[in-house]
């Protein structure tokens, strides 16, 4: 049925890369022209950082089937590594410190991925909590990481690549966008490659995967490494482009759960899903606070907002798990198919 629908749809005749390309062009050309600083600072920058983190976690959890609650730890590792590379190595280009920080996050990911060689599912998820607590502890405990700053909160350096300064909200947006576009493209290439198919094979049946000669242990650790690399770079964007400060507090367990929710709501094993999920997670509290303020006036203070956010979000996740386990992506595809069919029959 679905196969027939796609064959009939005129969209199928268009090349697959067209829609993403148009979207990217729109993000580069139109949005900087029409956006205000609220859009960049409050919506697009956190959206981009969380989307990228979602893409990273989706590689590990959605594709390779290894549940992780340590995403925020890898973000923190990336952010602090980039800060320290930038601080301690004179003249190191920003791009190099981003790549190096991704590698640091990847190394930490491999270490905390080791339990996955023995543990599965719930037990693995619990063991990844170790990463979460250990990294946060180490970053608060050893002030060397934050250059002995009294508050533990440090300013991120200016963003410049090859002499070009990414100043102001728009500049930081374009910087984040570029990093996200490049890494997302590479992630897409990965998940459609032999290695990506090996991830799926291990997720769907690891005994069969081992029997046909997929190196299961190596592939699992590779998934941890690549996923942590991407999440680490997402942490750099979060700290350098969005918050402009680097501090451990923002990378707590709540953040790890947030990223997990992004891929559950958006759609597991889908790159688009990470973006849809992140969009929902970022926009939803803003909408809720506007709506609450509008309906309840002063009664709707930040405490009520926080609580209602958690309740609605919790309900949403349960609803998705029950009604649409394949996430917003599946919903989106279904609606689009309906529309094309309706359009054809009219």
């Amino acid at each position: 049925m679905s196969a027939i629908a796609t064959q009939l749809s005129p969209a199928a005749a268009l090349p697959k890369w067209l829609a993403p390309l148009l979207l990217i062009a729109f993000a580069y050309v139109v949005i900087p022209l029409i956006g205000n600083s609220y859009l960049f600072e409050a919506i697009l920058l956190p959206f981009l950082a969380l989307s990228l983190a979602g893409v990273g976690l989706n590689i590990l959890t959605g594709y390779a089937g290894q549940v992780s609650l340590g995403s925020a730890a890898f973000m923190a590792a990336g952010a602090f590594a980039a800060y320290n590379f930038n601080l301690r190595i004179e003249g190191l280009p920003l791009v190099a410190s981003i790549i190096l920080s991704g590698l640091v996050a990847a190394a930490i990911g491999i270490v905390f991925g080791l339990p996955s060689l023995r543990l599965k599912g719930f037990y693995l998820a619990v063991s990844t909590l170790a990463a979460q607590f250990f990294v946060q502890w180490a970053l608060t405990k050893f002030s060397w990481f934050s250059n002995n700053s009294a508050s533990g909160v440090i300013d991120a350096p200016k963003l410049s690549i090859a002499g070009f300064e990414f100043d102001g909200a728009v500049g930081r947006y374009l910087f984040a966008l570029t990093v996200v576009v490049v890494l997302t493209f590479l992630a897409h290439r990965l998940v459609t490659s032999q290695t990506g198919r090996n991830f799926i094979a291990i997720r769907d049946n690891d005994t069969a995967a081992r029997i046909i000669g997929i190196p299961v242990l190596k592939t699992k650790l590779l998934a941890f490494a690549i996923s942590s690399f991407i999440i680490g770079v997402a942490g750099v964007i979060w700290a350098f482009a969005y918050l402009r400060t680097v501090e451990p507090a923002g990378f707590d367990l709540d953040r790890s759960f947030q990223i997990l929710f992004i891929i559950i709501i958006g759609g597991l094993a889908s790159i688009r899903g990470a973006f849809l999920g992140a969009a929902l997670i970022v926009v939803f509290p803003l909408v809720l606070s506007r709506l609450g303020g509008f309906l309840l006036g002063d009664l709707f203070d930040s405490g009520v907002l926080d609580m209602s956010q958690r309740i609605v979000l919790g309900a949403l996740i349960i609803l998705f798990l029950i009604l649409e386990p394949d996430g917003l992506v599946a919903l989106w595809d279904r609606v689009r198919r309906r529309l094309t069919l309706a359009w054809q029959s009219s």
Binding site: R197, A201, D204, N205
Partner: peptide
């Protein structure tokens, strides 16, 4: 014990994964 999330073609091709050198 098929890989449910892969196409039939990719499932069958995965039988050659052990030869992958790249």
């Amino acid at each position: 014990a098929l890989f449910k999330g892969l196409s039939v073609l990719d499932n069958v091709a995965s039988g050659l994964a052990y030869r992958t050198r790249s």
